[in-house]
Design a protein around this nucleic acid. Structure first.
Lengths: 201, 201
DNA sequence: GCAAAAGTGTTCTGGCTACACCCATGG
DNA sequence: CCATGGGTGTAGCCAGAACACTTTTGC
């Protein structure tokens, strides 16, 4: 996937500003909300905290990075000084921001395997191939819709809604729609791993 | 394993004090060192940062928890107001400390599967059954020395030193000694998982 | 009919677990 | 010689990957 319109994106630093994902450590709910409406985030978890004693002349500053996920059918508005960037086409980043972004992607990648975190990326109802695209982007490797469907059904993470999506202008069988059984993050399969193609397993 | 003398332990709060693992966020090297000599830690990684705006009347306090590992053949000295506790027989913990400790154990458990982090728990040279005890404690489930040996050799994490450990007073074949090939933490097998017994796979 | 997209049936794989068996030492 | 602890050989298992094939739509 060459990430044309990667379905998940991550807040990064806009020129001259800290993004919402990197505010000074203060009360989370009141300050992340300055940039993105936290209520639109389907998942939020802490990544790392860095202290940068040199930045400010009189006091140590502590910055905490968060990973926030947004369902693919939402596009939260941002203030004009902040913007979205596809995760694999980021502008230059300063300091350790590159490492933090890697950590975020890595965290998502891992949790896609053994938790139901997909619910945080997906709309309430979706076809398997739509979900496949989300997993492909999150896992950073190709995923087969065929197998994804069976893995997630076997694990009982998904259930069919009974609805069908009308087929597109070029035809094709209408897709059955599914939803996540639960929208609470939980470790559903402690030891499960989704491997990239070519890594037989 | 009912944890008789669990070979890994974790700093926890002693009455009326924060342990070294939970100091206020300041420069790490200078403040963890107040309690434990950081140079004795074979591994140190950040867990979570919590801000507790209510604790101090005039300022927000930010506390960062770390997971530090010590090789099983060392026993770092502590100040008299601090002490070691076996991880599954802890004194009462306050606030979110219980969750933080779980997070630490969980982190170790996960990394034992897909990294070479065992080097941080083990002495420089060890027998497989000694290592097995460390893995058993860290993974929190029984581990077969037989299979552990082969898994870690196949992954090329271990190498034989060529030395033998003299057999004990009750006899038994002398154990071959091994060492970790590398003592730098690295993700050696991204998709590997060590499962508990009874979870065929 | 034919292309496109979705879905099903089935086989294959490989890393890990399980288990039977062999080796070296002490007393 | 036998108990004890260490080590090897090999079979079994199963989640998930691979792939062939069937179903449903648009034109």
């Amino acid at each position: 996937m060459a990430t044309p319109a990667t379905p998940f994106r991550r807040r990064v630093r806009a020129p001259g500003r800290l993004s919402a994902a990197r505010r000074n450590a203060r009360r989370l709910d009141s300050h992340l909300a300055e940039k993105v409406d936290v209520r639109e985030l389907s998942h939020l978890e802490q990544l790392v905290t860095t202290s940068e004693p040199d930045r400010h002349p009189n006091e140590w500053q502590v910055a905490t990075a968060y990973l926030g996920l947004v369902p693919s059918d939402l596009d939260p508005g941002l203030p004009s000084d902040t913007s979205w960037h596809p995760a694999d086409n980021l502008p230059e980043t300063a300091f350790d921001h590159g490492a933090i972004i890697s950590a975020g992607r890595e965290r998502l990648r891992a949790k896609l395997s053994y938790t139901n975190i997909g619910f945080a990326l997906a709309p309430h109802a979706f076809s398997i191939s739509e979900l496949r695209d989300l997993y492909t982007a999150g896992l950073e490797h190709e995923v087969s819709a065929t197998n994804l469907q069976r893995v997630l059904l076997r694990r009982e993470l998904l259930e069919a809604t009974g609805e069908l999506r009308a087929s597109g202008p070029s035809g094709g069988r209408p897709a059955a729609l599914y939803r996540f059984r639960s929208r609470m993050l939980s470790i559903t399969d402690q030891f499960a791993v989704l491997r990239p193609p070519g890594q037989h397993g």
